[in-house]
């Protein structure tokens, strides 16, 4: 087993924590099928194995933080994809595509969400992110002068989450589901 590189290893716990989360994010995207053990994580981050236990005495605490970190990446990916665009249908569709693609690139998001939905902290994280996505959708629908923008946003957020779940199960895009989400908006208001 290779020993961890400590030549440029971050020394303080906060830097180690950031390095470990960044390493976890890389590993779950690049090799999602391989289990994320503390040993593997510390090797990838280039920190001593003790650093993991220092930052997260329990695996649950690490999983909670990894979920937050991955959800931040999903949010940032959506924001980056739609940056500079005017509100409306094109931005709404691109945001949904970006959200689904970012989730698909990170199967660990869904796996952690399913695991942590019964955990109070995990559930609170998930609720707040779903609320953020719903609000984003509501603002787009308001800009499109869609009737009942808040209610429609709430229902379509559920539809997008179901699509993400289905794509996680399938391990691939499910174009029929994406098409159903977009068709409703494409059909517009006569």
């Amino acid at each position: 087993m290779p020993s961890p590189s400590t030549a440029s290893a971050p020394a303080d716990p906060e830097s180690q924590r950031r390095a470990l989360l960044a390493a976890a994010s890389r590993l779950v995207r690049q090799k999602p099928a391989e289990p994320l053990t503390p040993t593997r994580l510390c090797q990838e981050a280039g920190v001593s194995e003790a650093a993991f236990a220092t930052n997260w005495p329990e695996a649950l605490a690490f999983e909670r933080q990894l979920l937050v970190s991955l959800l931040d990446e999903v949010r940032d990916s959506v924001a980056k994809t739609t940056l500079g665009m005017a509100p409306g249908l094109a931005r709404l569709k691109l945001a949904v595509e970006a959200y689904l693609d970012a989730n698909r690139a990170r199967p660990a998001v869904r796996a952690l969400a399913l695991k942590l939905q019964a955990d109070a902290d995990g559930a609170a994280t998930l609720r707040s992110r779903v609320a953020g996505f719903t609000l984003m959708m509501e603002m787009e629908l308001q800009a499109m002068q869609w009737p009942h923008p808040a209610a429609t946003a709430r229902l379509f957020t559920a539809a997008v989450l179901e699509t993400a779940y289905a794509e996680h199960e399938a391990g691939a895009k499910v174009p029929a589901l994406r098409d159903c989400v977009f068709r409703y908006f494409d059909n517009g208001r006569a």
């Binding site: 009737p147 009942h148 808040a150 209610a151 429609t152 709430r154 229902l155 379509f156 957020t157 559920a158 539809a159 989450l161 179901e162 699509t163 289905a166 589901l177 159903c180 989400v181």
Partner: peptide, 28 residues
């Protein structure tokens, strides 16, 4: 499948409100 996800969400919205939420039903 998506309609089922939406109607389940609608039922949760109405559950929290304790009554029929017209805007949610109209959106459905």
């Amino acid at each position: 499948r998506l309609y089922l996800a939406m109607i389940n969400e609608a039922s949760v919205v109405e559950h929290r409100a304790g009554q029929v939420v017209t805007s949610v039903r109209e959106a459905l």
